[in-house]
Amino acid sequence: MVLKKFLFKSSSAGIIFILVFLAGQIDDYFLRCYAAASPRTNNDIMLKIFGQLRQDVGLMVYLKADQYYHGGTHHPQHKTAEYLGKEPCEHAPGAEKADFETKDFFTRLYRAVRHQPARHLSDEQSKEITPWFYLATKLDPQNIKAYVIGGYWLGMRLSKPDEALKFLRQGLFSNPDAWQIYEQVADIYFLVKKDYRKSVVYFERAYSLFNQSETDVFELKHLLVFLAASYEFLGEYPAALKYHEKLLKINPDDAKLKTKISNLTDVIVRTKEQP
């Protein structure tokens, strides 16, 4: 009787626990079945149940990746660790000791317990940040940054381009208008896989979405540079020239760019002249 009661209690608790974890998987499955003419938020069962809380937790989980990359420290702690006389941290060179003097014993005790110098993880260790991107996007599929930065780390730093592309495609499924994700996919095709045909497709898509909504010049330049380079590697010089000229409009004084445009123009002319 006693054993029965115990088995009943623990199996009930176990079942509830497993169901909570399975809910995310079931959620994904139904979303794929009812694919997305309408925004994902309308179909997201978990979002309907938990609402904003899920997104907030997702954000916290995403920020964990940054904490992990810095060896477990939060950004404000970097400077105090410098003060504690530990080795300088690249985030806070030359932090003034006087800023952190305190007679408050509790603060000193807290810092001794909870503060450490920030250390960027080595390439081998940096894989430890990836679970947080995974979890952040599970909790909040609209967290575009999590997809982009996760994709970057997987594709560019951890030599997992296929996994990165799979992850980014999930991001595109949830955020079909996110130019940042298209850009990151294109970057991986260009830099890692050297598949310029595909990189052109994704850069073009990113560029078309970008023009509509963004004003960040740095990102625009990135897109134009890589679009131009992709076309150039494919031998499609007129298209490459078009994008170099757009770049020149942003950087009219760039001498190297002017030279590049001149060279491309020559190549195009020579190509036309050949029978």
């Binding site: 894989k127 679970p131 947080w132 995974y134």
Partner: peptide, 13 residues
């Protein structure tokens, strides 16, 4: 048993 992007040796999470 969680598999994150087929990366082995993860322990901090």
């Amino acid at each position: 048993n969680m598999n994150f992007f087929d990366i082995g040796g993860l322990s901090r999470y």
